[in-house]
Design a protein around this nucleic acid. Structure first.
Length: 626
DNA sequence: TCCGGATCCGCCCTCTGCTGGTAAGCG
DNA sequence: ACGCTTACCAGCAGAGGGCGGATCCGGA
């Protein structure tokens, strides 16, 4: 319990209460427990005038609760010690009209409930120690006073000159064995009628000479927040302050208006129930999770979550729900397909209003959920949450087979489908033979190869023009086997430009590749490399392929695959070997120029004589020029 | 006080589609 | 050997469906 001292004009309270207090003793008590004792001989209206003058600006609380009490600046007395304490909600009992409730737990706790005119009552539990606590809650904040024995409360109405002595509620803890209410119902009503101001000032003071009595006086109070430390409680206080129970009579029918939210009700009970929505009053406790609720019905629904009790069962399927609302919604989604919320800009309709609200953002472009780390903003909370993984690096989804991790569940499922599943669906391009694993990639394929191009796509080899890339590529393939590069100086022709470049050097005599070791020059880089390895690389061991028939060695050989394909391997040499079907050389024999294809035996290595090359071999089903 | 309907927020999911990096094929 | 092309792939965002849970309110 803190003992914060504030200066305040306080005489008014004593005048209001008409209490006889001893300033000297009050000062002592104030030093001891922060309670304030002082007289004030002015009326509430005078106080209000001073209040509105706004001179008083001292802070009351030490820590998280900072309030500014507004009465005046004249008094230098210390009025109240306030500090937030943890409040257990045990035995909080409020009635519809309750204004104040008091209870004792570990000592004494005083809880000021508002808004609403009505009762002031106190509930007291067993005293457990001499150290008493008085907790005062003003608009959800809870404050504590220490070592208080006698509590006296005084609720005052704004602009009431002097409150009746009878309206005071004096409670002696020694006497209080249970609930103590205002003693006179008539006085309660009077108080209820007159009490309009919803903020209260709580004043504590010693009650008698024995120094074991403390008087709390609750009166009107302007509670203002520190500018730099707004609190939820204060916000509610302001809301509550503006909330007035307005009973308007129109003929025989009365309506009740809430100034906070414009709610109206025709019945007092409805109005009172509504007004509870503007407070944090939640007296119904779930004993399983300690959550609190405003009504028994809400609590009952909540407890059903714990127990698994789902009383609302769907007749069309085996689903069951805790609340009727869930069942109705489920039936709309799954069975009736009723979608009452329709978009005015498109054909979209939804079961829930929130879905329509979310959908409308796709029309308006509204992105209310801003990322705090980049410029991204999303249209709903989930997308922002998902986006935040890009900053945190979180990858919550793991492939159970290869343990690769992913940021999104869908990405992981695609991964499993593509990498670890059989019979993976493929997507056939409707315009070509391409088969692509993903639909989205097929779309990319279509866009790149089959989309119409406004600009003309010219063939590299002729004057043909196309507007589709795929058609151009198909056309250019027709040039593939053409020896379209023709020598200007002889009849040589070839398919590749680089070959023609090398050939031209035979006419120009150009030998641009020079051996750094012996200055010998070559027309082609490969020839230089072979020269260098053969004559200047000490570690070079030439590979020799021997003819199985005569034992003659050769530096290169030919891979013959099946009956139709020939691939040349190996470097230039004095001759060539020919292997019919790779990896199975039961024997080797020479191939001589002019040898017939019938002499080539499958599975055998053959060779050509030096200088003849395979191009001189006869063409046939088993042997093509390579 | 209770019940049912309605509303709201939040969470998680699927489906979809685009993007950019990369490896492999090809010329 | 090199550059271009392209399918493959993970990352990421848009849109929407469905449900969980809390809350409010009218009416019985």
């Amino acid at each position: 319990v803190a003992a914060t001292e504030i200066s305040v004009l306080s005489e008014q309270f004593t005048k209001i209460k008409e209490l006889e207090l001893m300033p000297e003793k009050g000062l002592k008590e104030e030093e001891k427990d922060g309670a304030r004792r002082e007289k004030d001989h002015r009326s509430p209206s005078e106080l209000e005038a001073e209040r509105t003058s706004g001179a008083f600006q001292d802070s009351v609380l030490e820590e998280e609760v900072e309030l500014v009490l507004a009465p005046s600046e004249e008094s230098e007395k210390h009025i109240l010690t306030l500090q937030t304490v943890h409040f257990t909600s045990e035995a909080v009992e409020l009635q519809d009209m309750s204004l104040l409730s008091i209870q004792q737990q570990e000592g004494v706790q005083v809880m000021v409930q508002q808004p609403g005119p009505g009762l002031l009552w106190l509930e007291e539990g067993p005293r457990q120690s001499l150290q008493q606590y008085v907790a005062i809650s003003i608009q959800q904040e809870l404050y504590s006073l220490q070592e208080m024995e006698v509590l006296q409360f005084h609720a005052l109405e704004e602009n009431v000159m002097v409150a009746s002595e009878d309206s005071k509620l004096a409670v002696s803890l020694a006497e209080s064995a249970g609930l103590i209410k205002l003693q006179e119902g008539q006085e309660k009503n009077q108080l209820a009628e007159r009490t309009k101001e919803q903020l209260f000032f709580v004043e504590t003071m010693s009650g008698d000479e024995r120094s074991d009595e403390i008087v709390l006086t609750i009166s009107n109070l302007n509670v203002e927040e520190q500018e730099d430390q707004p609190t939820a409680g204060q916000a509610d206080a302001e809301k509550a302050k503006s909330t007035k129970n307005q009973r308007k009579t129109k003929g025989a029918k009365r309506t009740f208006h809430c100034d906070v939210c414009m709610f109206t009700a025709s019945r007092m009970s409805s109005f009172n129930r509504h007004m509870k929505t503007h407070t944090n009053e939640k007296p119904h406790l779930c004993h399983l999770c300690l959550k609190t609720f405003r009504t028994v019905t809400l609590l009952r629904n909540h407890v059903n979550i714990h127990t698994g009790n789902r009383p609302y069962k769907c007749n069309d399927c085996n689903m069951a729900f805790v609340t009727s609302g869930e069942l109705v919604r489920h039936r709309r989604y799954k069975h009736t397909h009723e979608k009452p919320f329709k978009c005015s800009m498109c054909k979209y309709a939804s079961v829930e209003a929130s879905k329509l609200k979310r959908h409308v953002r796709s029309h308006t472009g509204e992105r209310p959920f801003q990322c705090c780390q980049c410029s991204y903003a999303s249209r709903d909370t989930y997308k922002l949450k998902r986006h935040m993984r890009t900053h945190s690096g979180e990858k919550p989804y793991e492939c159970h087979i290869c343990h690769a991790r992913f940021t999104q569940n869908g990405t992981m499922k695609t991964h499993i489908l593509q990498k670890h599943s059989e019979n993976v669906p493929k997507y056939q391009c409707p315009h070509c033979a391409a088969i692509i694993a993903r639909k989205s990639d097929l779309r990319v394929h279509m866009r790149n190869l089959h989309a119409y191009s406004a600009t003309e796509l010219k063939c590299r080899y002729c004057s043909a023009v196309f507007h589709e890339r795929y058609a151009l590529m198909q056309h250019q393939k027709t040039h593939k086997n053409e020896k379209r590069f023709k020598c200007e100086h002889c009849s040589y022709a070839c398919k590749q430009e680089r070959h023609m470049t090398a050939h031209i050097r035979t006419h120009t005599g150009e030998k641009p590749f020079t051996c750094l070791s012996c200055n010998k020059c070559f027309r082609q880089k490969q020839l230089l490399n072979a020269h260098f390895r053969k004559y200047h690389d000490a570690n070079f061991i030439p590979t020799v392929y021997k003819c199985s028939k005569c034992g003659k060695g050769f530096s290169r050989w030919i891979l013959w695959v099946g009956n139709s394909e020939v691939a040349e391997l190996g470097g230039p040499g004095s001759g060539s070997l020919l292997r019919l079907q790779s990896g199975c050389p039961p024997g080797l024999h020479h191939l001589k120029a002019g040898l017939g294809s019938e002499d080539l035996l499958p599975g055998q290595l053959h060779h050509t004589t030096a200088g003849t090359g395979l191009s001189s071999l006869p063409q046939g089903p088993l042997c093509r020029a390579a």
